[in-house]
Amino acid sequence: MGPVEVVFLVVIAIFGAIGVVRGWQRELGVTTMLLLALFMIEFVLTTAIGTRVESFLSGANVSDAQIVTLQSMAAVGLLLLVTFISYQGLGLVYPGTGKSSFLSLMIGLLNGYLFAGSIWYYLDRANWPLVNVTPEFTSFYKFFVQILPPEIFGWQFFILLAVAMLIIRVIR
């Protein structure tokens, strides 16, 4: 297993630890924000909006590889920004009593999967810009890269899940 996988798996583990410390009520708020961010990214990249942006950039003599890199860097930037705001700034907190460390760990790991998994996906899609990663990937990498969030879920999944969470939060 190469260092790229290790780095992302360690980041997911760190998110799990953060989840235990913060509690699942706060972690669910981060999950909602990450789902909304992923919806925005995927919606822009995969619908007519993305096609228009691509044709505009092609018209400005930007190559296909550069377009993919630009899209990926924008996606990674947005994810980093949203995650930073969710953890550092004012965040959505879900109601609930009790402190279940296991549940907090699970939600924390899920946040890690959504965050690190998506960044992994976009960097892989752009052939790892700015970092020196050799393309001879391991079988684990080849497997895991196929089950990353943006790879297996469409924008419909992200928005429906985020809206469902918010509706359930409001209905008593």
Binding site: G96, L110, I152
Partner: peptide, 24 residues
């Protein structure tokens, strides 16, 4: 992928629902 999707939906929605109930 289907298992991951179902797991995420069940985990999140049940957690939110139980949290709302306990809060109420």
């Amino acid at each position: 992928a289907s298992i991951i999707g179902i797991f995420i939906i069940v985990l999140l929605l049940l957690t939110v629902r139980s949290g709302v109930k306990s809060g109420a």
